[in-house]
Every structure is written in structure tokens, then in C-alpha cells.
Design a protein around this nucleic acid. Structure first.
Lengths: 204, 204
DNA sequence: GCTACTATCTATAAACC
DNA sequence: TGGTTTATAGATAGTAG
């Protein structure tokens, strides 16, 4: 997508790798956001740069966004209406409502002397609960994602440790080799049992 | 990027939303992979579709690569490497009818004679949607937790590898010590340079 | 839900601040 | 490290099968 076609393999030049990282990372975040908005899905993107930094994108509330948009759509159907319509409207907007709440509303609606205010109160209460619930869900998802990040960090650390250990083994083996070579040079061949020598080399 | 510029807002038409979802999701995964390869960073992408599926990309194959290399190096446990092989890629969960249910609800509520629906009907509809939503949320949480489990498994594996590596180093050191002792016993002292010998022992 | 085909739009590589 | 700019590669909307 640039002046030149680029092979997809690690960019060895550090500065251009960094430049590309910055550009493509931004591009990825943008794309993620677009996908989540256009298609109404949840997207989580975590980018762990080699330098400990974490870049992330998360659209953790588009599920509730579905509901919100849907409710808005329903509300748009009829704005001006009598109290019954008004109540129905409330119902459209209350996917999260407990059944009992709506049943209460239904009973009230069947009465001639409907108390608007009480239903309004109920709706208000419901909305409050809904808001709290949404926040709780958001935090829950957030915490789960945090866990994933933590695990990733641990993983990184362990990989590093593995590398160090492997290097250690390599170093030890090299030194053993050197040592063996030294011994072979310094020691009269007749002093070495060749079978034993072979066995010793098998360690490597 | 197409025949026409599109606004970044929810695509209301279902089928084109689905089409776009498919295309852009693939594009996002591709971009993620490219970023991770080009810039040598770890990228995790989680996409939760409204239909209950999780599409996942994780560049943690670098991990897989490390493990595989190590396994080849140790070429001892076929079992472990077999387990490592299927670590990656997206998981598909079938079933679920959240989308269908929402469609149904949408149709019903979009009908001009929506007023004819009884409140009981609406309550029923709401309950259905609520149930589906709950299931969806449960599934989403489940998938996140699965990701965490995955990480946890990888972590355990790495810890195991660390142990093996440490044991190896221990073994190598012991053998070196034995060997040195052997050499000291078998070789005439006059053949050894004591300074060199001390230096050699410092490796251990 | 794909795959294929364009026409177009978008991202970005390179170069320069 | 982060903005420009520009030429070009790549992604994708619309469409058809």
C-alpha cells in the first residue's frame, strides 16, 4: 500500500520497523473500531510491543449498544401518544426489565385510573438498575481482558527465561567443547581412553 | 475502499452488514498478522459477533515457535509437541439463535399494527430476547475465560520447559564436574597448567 | 455464507520535515 | 517520535453467481 510492495516478514531495520509499527498499529485500531461500529460487534485488540508497551482497543459495550439502538428505533415509531402507547414505548425500551416489573405495569394499565407517575417512576428505577448492570458488565469484561493481558505478560517473561536458559546451555556446551579441545591438545593421546572420550562427547 | 464511500455507522441492512462483517473481519485478521510479523510484536484480536461466535487471532505462535524449536532440540516428548500443534486458530461455536430472535422481534415490532400486540405478547417477546441475551453474555464470558485458560495452559507449559532446561543445566554441570575430576585423576599433574585449570573451573 | 470481479476508496511506504 | 506529502499497493462496496 505504499510506494513499493513490502514482503510480509520481519523488518530488520529498526527505525523503519518502528515507523511501520506506529502506522500500522494506528491503522489496525482504526479498522477495529470501524468493524465494531459498522457490524455492531465487540472487538478487542491487544498489541504488545517489544518494549513492554501495550496498545489496546476494545469496544466492550456494543452489545448494550445493540439494545440502545434498538430501543431508539422502537421509540421513533410513535412519539406522540396516549398513556397506553407511552407505556408500550417504555416496554420497548426495557429489554432488561424484570418480568415482574412489566406485569405490574400491565396490571396498572388495565385499571381505568392509571397512575402515570408511578409507572414513570418504575421506568426510571428500571433504567437506574439497567445502568448499574451495564457498568458492572463492562467492568467484568474489562477485568477479564486485564487477566488476559496479565497472562500475556507472564508468558513473555517465561519465554525470556527460557531464552536465557537456552543460552546458558549453549554457553556451557561451547565451553565444554573448548575444554575438551584443550584437553585433547594438552594431553598425550595415549592417556585417553577413546571409548571414554566418545562417551564424554555424547553429552554435548 | 469500495465502489462508494461508506459512513462509519451501524449498517442497518442485515445482509450487507453480514457481508461487510465477513470481509472486514478477514481484513482485520490479515492486518493483525501482518503487523505482528512485520514489526515483531504480539497481537491478540478477539471479535465477538452478535451471533455468538468468537473469531480470534493471536500472534502467540511466536510462543508456539519457541516451544517447537525447544522440542526439536530436546526431541524427547512427542506428546507435548502434539499438544502444542493445535493451540492456535479461531474457534467456532455453532448453535445460538440470538440473531434470528432479534430479527423476529424486529419484524413484529416494525409491523404497522404493532399496537395490536398485547402487552402479554410483548412481555413474552421481551423474555425471549432477555433469555437469548443472557445466553449470549454467558457465552461471551465463557469465551473470554477460555482465552484465559489457553494462556494459563501455555504458561504451565513454559514453566515445565523452564524446569527441564534448569535440570539440563544441572546435569551438564554435574557431568562437567565428574569429567574434570576424571581428568584430574587420569592426567599427570605436570600436564596441567594450574592457572588454566582454575579458569576452567570458574565456568561451572 | 462464500467466491469472483471491478471500480473506488483507503492505508501506507518512502521521503522529507 | 511524530506530522506532511505523494505514489502506489491493498482493501473493500456493490454486484452477480
Amino acid at each position: 500500500m505504499g510506494r513499493k510492495k513490502v514482503e510480509i516478514k520481519r523488518i530488520e531495520d529498526k527505525s523503519s520497523r518502528q515507523a511501520t509499527f506506529s502506522k500500522r498499529r494506528n491503522g489496525l485500531m482504526k479498522k477495529s473500531k470501524q468493524l465494531s461500529v459498522l457490524c455492531d460487534v465487540d472487538v478487542v485488540v491487544l498489541v504488545f510491543s517489544s518494549r513492554e508497551r501495550l496498545f489496546e482497543f476494545s469496544s466492550t459495550n456494543s452489545l448494550t449498544g445493540v439494545i440502545r439502538r434498538y430501543n431508539n428505533h422502537m421509540k421513533a415509531e410513535d412519539k406522540v401518544s396516549a398513556e397506553v402507547d407511552d407505556t408500550e414505548e417504555s416496554k420497548y425500551a426495557s429489554f432488561m426489565t424484570m418480568e415482574e416489573l412489566l406485569q405490574t405495569a400491565e396490571k396498572k394499565l388495565e385499571e381505568p385510573d392509571v397512575d402515570d407517575l408511578s409507572i414513570t417512576d418504575l421506568v426510571h428505577l428500571e433504567n437506574q438498575v439497567e445502568t448499574a448492570l451495564t457498568q458492572t458488565r463492562f467492568r467484568k469484561t474489562h477485568l477479564l481482558i486485564e487477566s488476559i493481558k496479565n497472562f500475556h505478560d507472564k508468558e513473555k517473561q517465561l519465554i525470556e527465561e527460557n531464552k536465557v536458559l537456552e543460552d546458558d546451555i549453549g554457553t556451557i556446551k561451547n565451553r565444554e567443547e573448548n575444554e575438551m579441545a584443550m584437553n585433547l591438545n594438552n594431553i598425550a593421546p595415549t592417556h585417553m581412553d577413546s571409548g571414554q572420550q566418545r562417551e564424554t562427547l555424547n553429552f554435548l
